[in-house]
């Protein structure tokens, strides 16, 4: 009997602080023989006595010994997770949801557009593409954050920026006097990449309004709507489409999403409070 609601206990092996309200922890997946997932999928994480939250997997799919999540502490459960230390147990179930279309992008140019903590669910896709970089065309990454202090994975970003086969631009909504990079919204960066628009796959993750603007900009640059993918957020509670909470029109974000082609969600995004 498989029970999709049954959690398993996994121990934290490493905690990293990313920004003032965001942290990353690695869970030890070795005792269960590794944790396999596809980039874009999420897990339900359980904090003892407080409840579960859906958190995307942000680690490397080729390194199944550790299961990595980057979490922003915004509510009681995520704040309880924030208080955990190395060695503490976390309840986990998953992986759930649809993946990024990494395989569909073979031989094509790829543009990754991330906003805020939206970089976390995209990182496994970036790892996956970098692991077999030669089978893709251009790999462009546009990342927008609120301020320079809110930039996730800054050391890794510098490493990617240093690669000759990656075009990466980072922008912030509000700079500070020391900030030497771009200021302005992430959509403003998109025109700067030299993409073969008709043969480009776009992967977008961030606040819904940012994705709407970015998707429109990509379409105006000539990227086909069917090749623009977005990761949607709704109130995922069960992960398997049976609790009803995460419905977005006719679809359950937890099992039919979170990653959707723009063609599927565009009509739904324009309806308020759907």
């Amino acid at each position: 009997m498989t029970d999709a609601l049954l959690l398993e206990s996994m121990a934290i092996v490493r905690v990293r602080r990313e920004t003032s309200d965001t942290f990353t922890f690695d869970l030890d997946a070795r005792p269960r023989g590794g944790f396999r997932f596809a980039p874009g999928q999420f897990n339900m994480l359980y904090a003892f006595g407080l409840g579960e939250v859906p958190i995307s997997i942000s680690g490397d799919p080729l390194k199944p010994a550790v299961l990595t999540h980057t979490i922003r502490a915004v509510g009681p459960t995520t704040r309880a997770l924030e208080a955990l230390k190395k060695g503490d147990p976390v309840g986990v179930r998953g992986p759930f949801g649809t993946p990024w279309p990494v395989d569909q992008a073979l031989g094509k140019d790829v543009i990754v557009v991330a906003g805020g903590i939206g970089l976390a669910p995209l990182r496994p896709a970036i790892y996956s593409m970098l692991s077999r970089r030669q089978v893709f065309g251009k790999l462009c990454i546009a990342y927008g954050a609120r301020t320079p202090a809110d930039i996730l994975y800054d050391k890794e970003i510098e490493k990617w920026r240093g690669r000759i086969d990656v075009d990466l631009e980072v922008t912030v909504d509000r700079g500070d006097p020391d900030w030497r990079g771009h200021t302005g919204v992430v959509t403003g960066l998109l025109r700067r990449f030299e993409l073969d628009a008709e043969r480009t796959v776009a992967m977008l993750c961030g606040p819904e309004v940012m994705m709407r603007f970015a998707a429109r900009e990509l379409e105006s640059l000539g990227v086909p709507a069917a090749c623009i993918y977005l990761s949607m957020e709704r109130n995922m509670k069960c992960g398997v489409g049976s609790c009803g909470h995460c419905q977005l029109g006719p679809s359950f974000v937890c099992k039919d999403g979170p990653v959707y082609p723009l063609t599927k969600v565009e009509p739904l995004m324009s309806v308020r409070e759907l």
Partner: peptide
């Protein structure tokens, strides 16, 4: 772009 920037979309809404 300026309007989107003004929306401050990455701001955390604490519960």
């Amino acid at each position: 772009h300026a309007r989107l920037q003004q929306l401050d979309v990455y701001k955390a809404e604490l519960r």
